[in-house]
Design a binder for these strands. Structure first.
Lengths: 187, 187
DNA sequence: TTTGGTTTTTGACATAAGTCAAAAAATAAT
DNA sequence: ATTATTTTTTGACTTATGTCAAAAACCAAA
């Protein structure tokens, strides 16, 4: 919990009361490797803070699993579309390692927003940062070669190679595993 | 201005006072076709609401212009990264048609946030919707073929073909103009 | 260790998309 | 209308990446 509180100060400093209220609204969850935090078809009613571990978001397309994001320490994770719209999720969230997570339900968060302007500001600022991150990913996906995308990924998340199977990384990069292997072989 | 006020109610209904305050903070701007709303290297200090017209965001890469987004009626536009971080923009915003815009400066918006929780909520909700949109674009960019991306674009923005030269559309789709032409020729 | 399973790499070939050059079509200017 | 300019299409060829199959490397138990 302390880690979550410390982490959010990198975005915005909360008042003591807001911090206390926030603290009371998160619940600790631990799950084991390969377990699913969310299964497609279900509504994702929670936002999670990933304290320790790694996970991936993936969906099924023509019988193949497409990994479209990874989560690591200090990431906020959820099936965003489902969480916001309340519609069933098209994606699954699977643990790549055993994880410690902190969960908050959407209604609880909305309630916090009503009680503490400060917390809504915090989330507004977090959204801004996450939006910028996604914009960067979008530009990479659309306008860079497979090799460039791979190099960019290693730069951004150097630890990823030791923690995530190459098959998932290839999928995330939008290339076949064979192509990724060949890119890697040419140092 | 009325169009802006009406449009934001599709996201969140403001109190009368908040609406009044908001109204006073936007300034009307009209610009002609081909003019630049923002030039790379400059900090983008404003958020704009596009009442009428069309524009594009593009940046230069190896001497080529990469169009990475379009704006149309009722879109909020800015160089988001620059607007949020205060760093010089890497992108340009150019008018594809003569436009009517409403501008608000970042400090003015921050001031509104302090005075009206309600307006910060509105923006938080707008961010959520724009994030979801961008996620969809990302998935298209990364995991779909050029043909699929084109079909998706036509579905989302049917009017785009009459308003935007194919060269810009090809760039936006991340393909060469020749490839786009060939996709189109096979109906 | 040895075995069995998973993950990663390699090879041969197929396909999607890019590049360069030129023609054709559409638009704008005289 | 006629010419000039820009936009779009077509053709020939190249390159990046995908697919399928098999081999190799790696890992985890027994």
């Amino acid at each position: 919990m302390q880690q979550l509180l410390t982490h959010i100060t990198t975005y915005h400093r909360l008042s003591a009361e807001a911090e206390k209220a926030l603290q009371e609204c998160f619940t600790e969850i631990t799950l084991n490797k390969n377990e699913l935090l969310l299964t497609q078809g279900n509504v994702c009613r929670h936002l999670y803070f990933l304290q320790k571990g790694a996970l991936r978001g993936f969906y099924n397309l023509d019988g193949k699993e497409i990994t479209h994001w990874f989560g690591f320490e200090n990431d906020f994770v959820t099936s965003f579309h489902s969480f916001i719209t309340g519609e069933p999720s098209v994606e699954n969230i699977q643990l790549l390692e055993s994880c410690i997570l902190w969960a908050i339900a959407k209604e609880t968060l909305d309630d916090l927003f009503n009680r503490h302007h400060d917390i809504e500001r915090l989330v507004r600022i977090i959204y801004e940062k996450y939006y910028i991150r996604l914009e960067e990913r979008y530009v990479n996906a659309q306008f860079k070669s497979a090799k460039e995308r791979y190099e960019e990924l290693i730069l951004q998340t150097p630890h990823i190679l030791e923690r995530v199977p190459l098959g998932f990384i290839a999928s995330y990069l939008g290339i076949s595993q064979e192509t990724l292997s060949r890119i890697r072989s040419k140092f």
